[in-house]
C-alpha cells in the first residue's frame, strides 16, 4: 500500500462530509441540478466527484460493487482504507460504481421489495457525459420540467416504471455530479 492510497481522503471528515452531502442531497432532491464536488480524489479511473460520494455515503455497512475499469487493485486498496466497504457482486450491492457500460445489465441491481423499497441499490455512474443530448425530466423535485443528459434514457424510464421500487442513480464526471431518483419520469 502506497502513501498515495492513504492520502487524498477528506481533510476534515465532518465538514467536508457535510458540504458533500448537502450537494448530493440537493442533486437527488432536484433532478437536473448539477453540483460541483471535489473534496477527495482516488486512483484512476475514479472521478473526484465519485470519490467524494464514496467517502460521504459508504462504509463497512454498505456492500459495494465495482464494475469494469473501476475494479482495479489500486482503487480497491483506496476504498478498503477510506471506506472499508465489502466488495460484492452486483446482486448484493448497496452501492455500485462504474461506467454506464460496465454497469450493464442494470437489472441485476437490487430494486427493493414492496414492503421495503428503500432496500435498493444506488448506482454511481462515473465518467458520465454531461454534455450529451439532454433528456426531459418531470416528477417530484422538479418545478415544471428539467433536463439532464442521461447515458440511456430507456433504461431510466424502465426503472421509473417499477416505482416505488427501482434503483437510484448518481451521475458523476470530473468534479460534476447529478442524481436521478427512481421517482423521476423520463419523457
Amino acid at each position: 500500500m502506497t502513501a498515495q492510497i492513504l492520502s487524498e481522503g477528506f481533510k476534515d471528515a465532518a465538514r467536508d462530509g457535510a458540504h458533500a452531502f448537502r450537494a448530493i442531497l440537493t442533486a437527488m432532491a432536484r433532478p437536473g441540478t448539477i453540483a460541483t464536488l471535489q473534496a477527495a480524489s482516488g486512483p484512476a479511473p475514479i472521478s473526484p466527484a465519485a470519490a467524494t460520494v464514496l467517502l460521504t455515503l459508504c462504509d463497512r455497512t454498505t456492500p459495494l460493487h465495482l464494475a469494469g475499469a473501476h475494479d482495479n487493485p489500486e482503487l480497491r486498496d483506496w476504498i478498503a482504507f477510506h471506506c472499508a466497504s465489502p466488495f460484492v457482486s452486483a446482486e448484493n450491492a448497496t452501492f455500485a460504481l462504474g461506467d454506464w457500460a460496465a454497469l450493464q445489465p442494470v437489472d441485476r441491481f437490487g430494486i427493493g421489495t414492496p414492503e421495503y423499497p428503500d432496500r435498493a441499490a444506488t448506482l454511481i455512474v462515473d465518467r458520465h457525459d454531461f454534455d450529451a443530448a439532454p433528456t426531459r425530466l418531470t416528477g417530484p423535485g422538479i418545478r415544471d420540467t428539467a433536463t439532464l443528459a442521461l447515458p440511456e434514457a430507456r433504461a431510466f424510464a424502465a426503472n421509473h416504471g417499477l416505482f416505488p421500487l427501482g434503483w437510484d442513480a448518481i451521475l458523476t464526471s470530473g468534479s460534476r455530479l447529478a442524481a436521478l431518483p427512481r421517482s423521476t419520469e423520463i419523457s
Partner: peptide, 25 residues
C-alpha cells in the same frame, strides 16, 4: 461537528436519500 459521529451521519444520510427517492415512504 453537529454532535453525531460520522458513521451515524452516513447512515442517516443514506436514509434521507432513499426517502427523497421514494417520497412519503
Amino acid at each position: 461537528f453537529a454532535y453525531l459521529d460520522e458513521g451515524t451521519k452516513r447512515m442517516i444520510r443514506r436514509a434521507i436519500l432513499k426517502g427523497i427517492a421514494v417520497p412519503g415512504y
